[in-house]
């Protein structure tokens, strides 16, 4: 027991040192006002059969990892999941101890605004479906230990997609979460933007669709803005430079990866996490903005869920987890 205590003290001192290096006297938070929040964004590649088959063991393992972490008290407090199309992936939401689950729009919750792409309306009028033809829901989930007190969504309009991505009802999903001790609720947004080459559509079309989705996210942010601190995370498919540039220019939030790496000493990077996987060699991203009277800062980040199961990765994405400190100013 004594040995364990000693070990724990050392660990705590090291953690403290990390915070101390960058915090400085001027912006040192009052200890009692700092809240730690672990947020995981994870595209679990839960495509339905027959596109993907035999994924159940992978979903089960993802759930196991979250349960193991919960048993250790290190579970992410909020999990943002993308591509939970397969009903069998529900195991991740239902068996991991998260009390609150917000499901994104389903297949039938489509937005009927917009118009069919001209490519799909060049033949007989009645066979041109200007209403979106969605075959899958949004695939979005938000799991939270903390109460979700409000939730909003916006399905992208029918002309805000390109290629195969149009088959799913891609959306923006907001959960307003009450975090004990925080002066204001926290707004968490999960989304999955149009893919690039996987969309199998002309480059201009997919870029245009992605740009429109970015515009819609900006509109959504303006519409839902109440002064709450905001974390926007998900699979934004912004690996392409011009997509990333447009996205960050329009949205205007801080990129957690950039901010963390600019603040070495205040923000740690997980062991085994490659820097490029936090920055530009990834479609998974975290962005954030302070709220009125609440400061948000990334303190630690890592790419996780990198284990193999039966020789295959759990997903075609890694988890992207950021430990934020939320500070009541």
């Amino acid at each position: 027991m004594a040995g364990m205590m000693k070990f724990t003290v050392i660990i705590l001192m090291l953690m403290g040192a990390v915070f101390e290096q960058g915090a400085g006297a001027a912006d040192a938070p009052k200890a009692s006002e700092v809240i730690v929040l672990r947020v995981l964004s994870y595209n679990i590649n839960g495509l339905p059969a027959p596109i993907k088959k035999g994924k159940e063991p992978h979903y089960a393992r993802i759930a196991d990892v979250l349960n193991e972490r919960r048993a250790n008290g290190t579970q992410p407090h909020i999990v943002l999941i993308q591509e939970a199309f397969d009903g069998k992936s529900d195991i991740v939401a239902e068996t991991t101890g998260y009390k609150y689950v917000l499901k994104g729009p389903g297949r039938k919750d489509e937005s009927k605004r917009g118009d069919a792409h001209w490519v799909q309306k060049t033949r007989k009028a009645y066979a041109s479906f200007s209403d979106p033809q969605k075959f899958m829901g949004s695939g979005l989930l938000i799991l939270s230990d903390y109460p979700i007190i409000d939730a909003r969504h916006k399905a992208f309009n029918s002309d805000e997609c390109a290629g195969f991505d149009c088959m799913s009802n891609k959306s923006i999903l907001l959960a307003r979460i009450e975090i004990p001790g925080l002066g204001r609720p926290l707004d968490i947004i999960n989304s999955h933007f149009n893919s690039r080459s996987a969309a199998k559509a002309p480059k201009k079309a997919v870029f245009k669709a992605h740009s429109r989705q970015t515009n819609t996210l900006k509109w959504f942010l303006d519409k839902t803005h109440t002064g709450n601190p905001i974390i926007v995370a998900g699979d934004f498919n912004t690996k392409e430079e011009r997509r990333y540039s447009y996205f960050t220019e329009i949205i205007g939030f801080k990129d957690a990866g950039v901010e963390c790496l600019d603040a070495i000493g205040r923000c740690a990077v997980g062991e085994g996490t490659r820097v490029e996987e936090l920055l530009f060699k990834t479609n998974d991203k975290h962005f954030y903005a302070d709220g009125d009277g609440v400061q948000v800062q990334p303190r630690r980040m890592e790419r996780n869920f990198d284990e193999m199961l039966n020789g295959k990765p759990l997903s075609d994405h890694l988890g992207y987890e950021v430990v934020y400190s939320l500070l009541n100013e």
């Binding site: 200890a31 009692s32 006002e33 700092v34 809240i35 730690v36 919960r70 008290g73 579970q75 939401a93 239902e94 101890g97 998260y98 009390k99 609150y100 689950v101 917000l102 499901k103 994104g104 729009p105 919750d109 937005s111 605004r113 799991l143 230990d145 903390y146 979700i148 939730a151 909003r152 969504h153 916006k154 399905a155 309009n157 999903l173 907001l174 959960a175 975090i179 004990p180 001790g181 819609t216 509109w219 959504f220 519409k223 839902t224």
Partner: peptide, 28 residues
């Protein structure tokens, strides 16, 4: 430092079925 309210208000060992929240659409 600690999260002052979390311990008593939040159940980190919740074992029941999750509470599903319904979101409301914002339409343009």
């Amino acid at each position: 430092a600690a999260i002052p309210v979390a311990a008593k208000d939040v159940d980190f060992k919740y074992s029941g079925q999750p509470i599903y929240i319904q979101s409301e659409e914002i339409e343009d």
